[in-house]
Design a protein around this nucleic acid. Structure first.
Lengths: 206, 206
DNA sequence: CTGTGTGAAGGCTTTCACAGCC
DNA sequence: GGCTGTGAAAGCCTTCACACAG
């Protein structure tokens, strides 16, 4: 379905809209205007409307959008993307914190397992997922058809571990190591880098 | 200095270049070509060169860039932005993990203090910074001229806490809560949202 | 009269192509 | 020959302006 090309930035914003809609739904709101929804998502109303036109018309002119209905359509577009199993590699401070973060399940991702060079240090019980040695990586990825990995290892081993992940069949990496990973074309990487975000912020408050 | 307008995305990439240069320097490399540096930063060579032209010429044609020199110039452009004091608000799992993350100091940021509704739960000793109650926020921000904050509180209180931060004089917020903060124009916000990054990744591996 | 849908315009970034220097 | 610097072109994304529906 929808093999229409949706711009990269639009896809990103769809997630924001979806979140805002869930909040509206939780508040028993039935209808939202593009102005209201856009505000909740931090964008301009015209942008929101334009984004939605990439996959159809949902609004009622003079009224706004039906929360349920738009929500359902967004699930449909982003939909198959949810409920994916994910693995986390590197159960240090940051990795452990992410594992304990309640937002994953809520947003539709399940952490199938965590991997670490030293599996004992993260106790599975406390973290709520199995913590396995790297040698088990390939098997688990194949068995559970895992395509995505969260990488929270130190920078100096990140590339090496990323190679192992790709070798094992991982297609998408959410990389927290402060280094740009070199990967083949079929692999997607998103980076999360706290230091760079801070640096960026500070530039704009001169 | 340099009130020339540097595009937002360029500023972001300058941080990547700077990092890559530090690694090159650590390896005693004296000269890099735009091709090599661009690869390390994950961009195209022409993009790197164009980015650098916003604030001067540094390269030697036929040779490349002097690592020291370019590095110094980048420090200069991003420079005053470094070594800023930062506060962290919300010393839960994620907040504590970030405090223990060694990357801050290395990248030139110092966490002046952490704040929490329940200061006892994060022991200052373990975290390496004072953990204070929210009532001390305003005083510390004023005393230490803090302009930036890392926000790692639960989503349902994020807006409220952000308001307090802004009220206290904070100008820039690195927000980890999965919600779009409504802030006045003079305040800058960057969002880090793991769930959305995952969702985004998964869309692109259909 | 309110609020959506959308072609067209505008603005911002990236990429190209090649001139210029070592 | 190798590699930088850069105007021009292309591409992408956002915003505008307004037609149109309820």
């Amino acid at each position: 379905m929808s093999k229409l090309i949706i711009p990269r930035k639009t896809v990103y914003r769809l997630s924001l809209y979806y979140r805002a809609l869930q909040r509206a739904r939780a508040n028993r709101v039935e209808t939202v205007s593009s102005a209201a929804l856009a505000k909740a998502a931090g964008v301009k109303p015209t942008q929101l409307r334009k984004d939605l036109t990439y996959f159809g018309q949902f609004g009622t002119r003079g009224l706004g959008y039906n929360v349920e209905q738009l929500s359902a359509r967004l699930t449909d577009v982003l939909g198959t993307t949810r409920l994916q199993p994910v693995i986390l590699v590197g159960a240090g401070n940051l990795g452990s914190a992410l594992l304990k973060y309640p937002g994953f399940a809520k947003e539709g991702f399940e952490v199938a397992a965590a991997f670490d060079l030293n599996p004992s240090r993260g106790r599975a019980k406390e973290l709520g997922v199995p913590v396995l040695p790297m040698t088990k990586l390939k098997d688990l990825v194949h068995e559970q058809l895992v395509k995505m990995a969260i990488l929270t290892v130190p920078a100096h081993v990140a590339q090496e571990v990323a190679n192992e992940l790709i070798e094992a069949g991982i297609m998408a990496i959410l990389n927290f190591a402060p280094i740009i990973l070199q990967v083949p074309d079929h692999v997607v990487v998103n980076n999360v880098d706290v230091a760079i975000e801070l640096e960026n912020l500070s530039y704009f408050i001169q």
